[in-house]
Amino acid sequence: MASRGMPLDTAAIFSTIMEAILYGFSVLMFVGTIWTLTYKRRMKEINRPIVVVAFMLLILSTAHMIVDIIRIEQGLVTYRDTFPGGPQAFFADVSQVTFVIKNIIYTMQTMVGDGMVIYRCYIVWQTVWVIIIPSLLWFGITVCGICAVYSVSQATSQAGNIFAKATGQWITAFYAMTLASNLLASGFLAYRIWMMERNVSAIRVSRSSMMPIVRVLADAAILYSVTLLSALVCFVEANNGQYVILDMIMPIISIAFYMVIIRMAMKTRSHSYLSTVGMGSETARGTAQQYHMKPMQVHISQITHEDDASKLAY
């Protein structure tokens, strides 16, 4: 299948520039994430799995950025005059080591990012039944990613055309299942938090609300899903724009993860601070007769609901 769209050397330059911009933003968000997770917290209070995942996403994004820079240098400088067909043919050759490594890193990044969305969904629902379909899709993503990388690494006569059937069928399935898994897990997660909010909104004793969490979850899901859908459409249409979007997805996965963690951490800190201030002011005001049993029970119920959601960050 013949490719369409911008020339591949132009696509390589543009994709690297866009990835670098988003990568810089993701690094800033990584710093903010680590700060919110560790500031004024003892070591045992830090959610170490979340910190590990944050570092993994940063390392994978950095590795992908480095490989892209090396690939640009090889295609436009080192092999510009010696590679048969010039830079266009170099960037079209899917059997190049740098291209294979890029796809391995992207597959790993996707597995980590999608796995964390499913993990968040399980933490909030506290049941495996809700994550069965997303988990099956995640395993399908893993298989398709491995098969796609393998078919690319073994490309010979079909090298130079990533849209060929041997590689295209696996990549199309990979994009489609990633999109479905992300939408399902994010939808279940947002629905559960929205239900918690609705259940306590009528009897809330403070102004604290979990709706900002729902909004940031929706924003992260939309950001990632729109990017994936664009990549899928470009790939199905054999448009070289998919190379640009593919490189952009790498830092976007990190950004979507970081923005949820930062917002959850801010929400948890704010709730903790308001609860502490409220208890202090009530204590200062007077006697035990001023405390009514019903409001106390409602307040504890609310904290229980919000603590379930706060596990996403802590």
Results as ranks from 00 to 15, higher is better:
209 S>V: 00
205 V>I: 12
293 M>V: 12
222 I>Y: 07
117 V>Y: 08
54 A>S: 10
224 Y>I: 02
109 Q>G: 15
228 L>R: 08
141 I>A: 07
151 S>H: 11
238 A>K: 09
63 A>R: 02
205 V>W: 00
242 Q>G: 01
193 I>S: 01
24 G>W: 05
178 T>Q: 12
235 F>K: 04
110 T>Q: 12
293 M>I: 09
159 A>H: 07
85 G>K: 04
225 S>Q: 05
147 C>L: 15
152 V>H: 15
164 A>D: 10
212 P>G: 06
200 V>Y: 13
225 S>M: 05
111 M>C: 12
223 L>A: 13
296 M>T: 10
301 S>C: 11
258 Y>I: 04
67 V>S: 08
169 Q>C: 05
261 I>W: 07
98 T>Y: 08
129 W>C: 11
252 I>C: 05
265 A>C: 13
179 L>Y: 03
149 V>S: 09
80 R>E: 05
187 G>Q: 03
288 A>T: 13
41 R>I: 09
284 A>E: 07
22 L>Q: 04
217 L>A: 04
43 M>H: 07
305 H>E: 15
113 G>C: 08
279 M>H: 05
150 Y>S: 14
56 M>D: 06
61 S>D: 12
105 I>A: 07
255 I>F: 01
26 S>G: 06
185 A>N: 02
81 D>K: 03
113 G>N: 12
106 Y>P: 04
250 M>V: 14
93 D>Y: 09
29 M>S: 11
203 I>R: 10
142 T>S: 13
200 V>G: 01
141 I>W: 01
21 I>Y: 08
296 M>Q: 13
144 C>S: 14
243 Y>R: 07
105 I>S: 02
208 S>C: 00
285 R>A: 14
279 M>T: 09
94 V>Q: 09
252 I>G: 02
126 Q>H: 14
120 R>K: 13
184 L>Y: 05
115 G>N: 04
177 M>C: 14
205 V>P: 01
93 D>S: 06
36 T>D: 01
112 V>K: 02
188 F>D: 00
84 P>K: 06
40 K>S: 05
127 T>G: 06
32 G>M: 01
306 E>W: 10
142 T>I: 11
218 A>H: 03
32 G>D: 00
137 L>H: 02
240 N>M: 02
65 M>L: 14
17 I>S: 07
65 M>D: 04
96 Q>N: 10
46 I>T: 01
47 N>E: 10
